[in-house]
Structures are given as C-alpha cells and as structure tokens.
Amino acid sequence: GPIILQTYRLIAEYKKSSKHELSMKAGDLVEVVEKSTSGWWFCQTESHRGWLPATYLEPLEGPDESEDQEPNYEGELYQTTKPYKAEQEDEISLEQDVTIEVIHKLLDGWWVVRKGEQTGYYPSMLLQKTGEKR
C-alpha cells in the first residue's frame, strides 16, 4: 500500500545553513520522510526535498508525545566524539573523549546529559556509546 508520511508544520522561519537543507517559512507544511537521531529530519514538499531541524517542526495532528522517550535518570554511558561549547545557558560544554551519562534522549537531537553535578543539553550527533567504534 501507499506509504503515509506524517505532516509537520514549521513553527518559525528557518533559513538553511548548508546545501541539502530547506529554507521554509513559519506555517509551511512538510512531509517527514526520515527522522535521523541527529535531530535533522529529511522532509519533502511538492517541489523540494531536504533536511530540516526537528526543533522547528510540530506535528499537524497535535502533540506527538508518544514518540518522546522517557528520561532514564540512572543514565546511559556515552562519550563525546567532538568538543562542543555551550551557546545557551541550558547547554553543557564538553571536550572530546569525555564520558558522560545520557539521561534523556530527545528526538530533536539535543540530549540531556550529566557530568558529575552538571546537567545540560548536548548535541546527540557528537556522542557515541562508550566502547563502540566511531
């Protein structure tokens, strides 16, 4: 049968920052083809295909909380594959090859991680499970 794709709405204007992204206006509708754990979602309109940040998309059919994983306060061990410097006060700055605990894997690609007493958002694409090869 036909593949039914979910429709999402842009919550704000988004201007592409690399070649294969889409630029869209607030209120535009897109179909989501693939949800990458990086938080970049592959989307299509009638005339274009490309990547959009999940943080700018909301489901047309009301909140889709069933897809959000629950936090795991015990934490799951990951390590950073690249350094990242916090740009917002709720993010965490870490160097490369630092072991941290992931306590909430969010679909938008910003995971809540814990390092000692510190907690904050970190890009999931800069994390890998400890012990796994890059």
Partner: peptide, 22 residues
C-alpha cells in the same frame, strides 16, 4: 548525497519555543 544529514548540530528551538531547563 542529499540523503546524508548535515554534519553540524541542528539549531536549538526558536527562543519562544524553548523547553525549560532540564
């Protein structure tokens, strides 16, 4: 390829849509 996601982290939500501190 167009099907490779961008290599930079996606932006945080627009300011008015940001979640509260974890």
């Amino acid at each position: 390829s167009i099907r490779e996601p961008p290599t930079n982290p996606p932006p945080r939500p627009p300011a008015e849509h940001r979640r509260k501190r974890p």
